[in-house]
Design a protein around this nucleic acid. Structure first.
Lengths: 348, 348
DNA sequence: ATGAAAGCGCTAACAA
DNA sequence: TTGTTAGCGCTTTCAT
């Protein structure tokens, strides 16, 4: 085989140009700025592109243009419906704008999270979306590229030039807890996903404590259970907390997944919900309406947060507008069947 | 500012090399083949890397090495737990091997799917994972790069050099349906996700029909409902099918999500499960055990499929072994509370 | 509307 | 063990 004849390898721009009898600059224009090219030329070139099965080389394109049109997202776990729902909204917002999403997971670990930032940047991410704020606490900010914006979703505002799209975790949880506690519950347990160093989880805990305080219950009386954010985590914690104190009448959970786990286990242990036991969740995921009775929870605008975060990234990639500041979105109480006053209210 | 002094831009390999007093080749080795470099040199260079906040330029690296260490995955929807569960297993298998995952969605649309293949290849994907087999039916294979392997997950074997990791959809569904029908159900409805051109969904339908045939029921008596693969899709279809024929005693669903939607709606309509109504699903997702009674379904080794598919990609990327042939994994019946014989068995 | 040519930042021979 | 150097395939001025 001669070197110059049709090679049995991946075709390049030059190959297309040669086949179409134009320069490679013209082929590049056809692909990137078709309006600058004559209609006929366009057709001829596109024909050859199809014929040869040409695909632009991503590396070369990125190197020459200094653009990757890629963002990275660091998600604690793909097994957690909350994060995935947000990821879905992000991907949905970005796909038509031809911006790709590189997915990295952290397993709720802030060290891994920090490494993923570097990795994503090395992978060409022009911006990074992230769900936890431990990155900022744990790291020397100076190492984080100043040219790669990092936006935190659903957590609290961060220091530095970082931006945030979220909601008031403390207040949202306090509202829900206050509503529940005001029904007369005295013996309360709180199941939270592992706190680690996540401020947003601490804020929810503070929200619960705020509610207790307002209701004249000492926050120190709150029984706290930390666990994995899974159905089983909820179920296991419920067994444990009921073994610790069978008179518990209200179980507040830091998210719906835990709450559904609690409800499932409680039902199988023949507790009647909400007669024997009230349960609350957080987020208002689809599964909140799958269990019977349906779960009382807080609606968090997950998809909207994802869209806002995505838009901020688009604005950066397209207009070079560095995202800044923080946005707090509204949450809403969803009072449903799993919440009721405790059965035996003691007469004073 | 002079041109040569510390520039306020992204540092390059050459910048690190200059700062460390070595050649850029040495810096490259430190980063890619540290074993070839003297320990002292390694330390000095790494120190400068950190100091400057250097991140390798992905485009340049990809261009020079002809490697991206990236695979693409085309997923019908990130809102469907089944696909996400598999994605999770894939990501998990790949993260430690430093292979990145580019996520693209198709919205169950084979045209979009086909476009995503091109897009992912242009994005540098060295291989592509995909959940549907319509791509192969709809397309001129010659346009799909021969150098980029495409593996189908969970669907049937495809033609050409493409590879597949899946299971026998028809047989798995037939086993479940046969078990259910053998209990004496005569009036049966089947709710399926939109068939479109997906062979695997047709295969499940055939499985149901096989079971009816074996039980002496004419397959034409099966009432078929196509809907979106969501809880609401299941709920809505259930309302419809009960309006069409209130004597239905068994609802077979093409997946657990639909089945849970059916169960939720049935419960809220005061049907007693399984006394009035039996329900079956497919996949054995977490949510199968969340509803009460728990869902009868088929366990599909989703995570295992993801891992196998990921491993095949690793083998291609690392050893240049083109994936080929197809793998069929085992499924297992999960008989749980939503299935029972129909209440009024007519005496013959 | 099109072409020529200079890099983009890195890797991988090859030399030393 | 380290340095020199020639590209990788594309975009993008600058000409024409």
């Amino acid at each position: 085989m001669s070197k110059d004849s049709t090679k049995n390898v991946v075709p390049t721009l030059a190959d297309v140009a040669r086949a179409a009898g134009v320069s490679s600059a013209t082929v590049s224009r056809v692909l990137n700025q078709p309006s600058l090219v004559h209609e006929n030329t366009f057709q001829v070139v596109m024909q050859k592109v199809r014929e040869l099965g040409y695909h632009p080389n991503f590396g070369a394109r990125a190197l020459a243009s200094k653009r990757t049109h890629t963002i990275g997202i660091i998600i604690p776990s793909l097994d957690n419906y909350y994060y995935v729902k947000c990821l879905s909204a992000i991907e949905e917002s970005l796909k038509d704008l031809r911006i790709s999403v590189l997915v990295a997971t952290s397993n709720y670990n802030s060290v891994i999270e920090r490494n993923q930032v570097d990795r994503l940047i090395s992978r060409g991410a022009e911006g990074i979306l992230c769900f936890r704020d431990t990155i900022h606490a744990d790291t020397d900010d100076t190492v984080i590229s100043k040219t790669t914006p990092l936006i935190t979703i659903g957590s609290r505002a961060c220091r530095g030039a970082m931006s945030m799209i979220g909601f008031n975790n403390r207040q949202a949880m306090a509202e829900l807890a206050l509503y529940a506690v005001a029904m007369g519950h005295k013996n309360i347990a709180y199941i939270t996903a592992h706190l680690n160093k996540n401020t947003f989880l601490f804020e929810r805990l503070e929200g619960v404590q705020d509610a207790l305080g307002h209701s004249g219950i000492s926050p120190s009386e709150l029984r706290l259970y930390e666990t994995h954010s899974t159905f089983d985590g909820g179920s296991d914690s419920f067994e444990k907390l009921m073994a610790d104190d069978p008179t518990t009448t209200l179980v507040i959970c830091s998210n719906d997944i835990l709450a559904v786990g609690v409800a499932t286990k409680a039902l199988s242990m023949k507790y009647s919900i909400p007669a024997d036991l009230s349960i609350t969740g957080f987020y208002d995921l689809d599964i909140a309406r799958v269990i019977e009775p349906k779960l009382t929870t807080v609606m968090v605008p997950i998809a909207q947060m994802g869209r806002r975060a995505a838009m901020a990234m688009v604005d950066f990639i397209v207009n070079n507008t560095m995202p800044t500041g923080s946005v707090l979105l509204e949450t809403r109480l969803c009072i449903r069947g799993t919440l009721a006053p405790p059965k035996q209210v003691e007469c004073v």
